[in-house]
Amino acid sequence: MSDTFERLMAFVDGQVDAAESAPIRAALQVDGALQAKEGEWRAQSQALRAAFDPILEEHVPERLRAQVAPQAEVLRFPSWRAHWRGLAIGAGALAAAALLGFQFGTGNNEGLLRSTPEGVRAKGALAQALERQASGPAAGKAVAIAFTLTAQDGAPCRAFRVPDQGLDGLACRAEAGWSVIALGTQTKGAPASFRPAAGLSAGVLAALDGLQGSDTLDADAEAARIKAKWR
């Protein structure tokens, strides 16, 4: 008996194929108890769906959506500010910069970089160029600015090259001056033509990605920022 009802249940639940369902259909024709059960079970299934299906239309709580939200594909630095506090250019990087040939200020005006407790600051010709020089070719000058962009937190940042030394870097404007957040050695034979990101070293390009910044500023926008002293 129970076996008959189990087969009826499988039939009601759509688990049996046409061949298997034929004898069940035949039994249903003649057995009132089976018929009654079929009706009850179909009604129950319907009641269950009616009770639970509306949940599909409910608003999904933010905490659940956030769990599977897409992650940024770009490797993201905490923020460039964290970098100039010493993460990106820590002691090791400073030593590397020295090895690369960067002249550090020792009271010497020729120096381009200055080490501070908050990180590495531009000084001398580098600081002047970052502050006042337009992007583009800079024949005869110590520093060329490649381009300017705005970091995600609103700070202006500029990529630069020091052609004589085959070096490049990225600096962002902070209250106290230009913080250098990345330095690199340029690949030999960098293109003579001045295409924006071309020829920047891998480390500098990675730091640029990390900024999640805007597109580069055009000449007019950049000139306006320079004139406003980056405020």
């Binding site: 639970f52 599909l56 409910e58 959506r65 599977v68 897409p70 594909e73």
Partner: peptide, 23 residues
């Protein structure tokens, strides 16, 4: 990426997961 696809597929399943969990 594969991970992004996986996350998107999980996100699409949340309404059904909530229905099942409510049951």
């Amino acid at each position: 990426t594969q991970t992004a696809q996986f996350r998107a597929a999980l996100a699409a399943l949340i309404p059904r997961m909530r229905r099942f969990a409510r049951a």
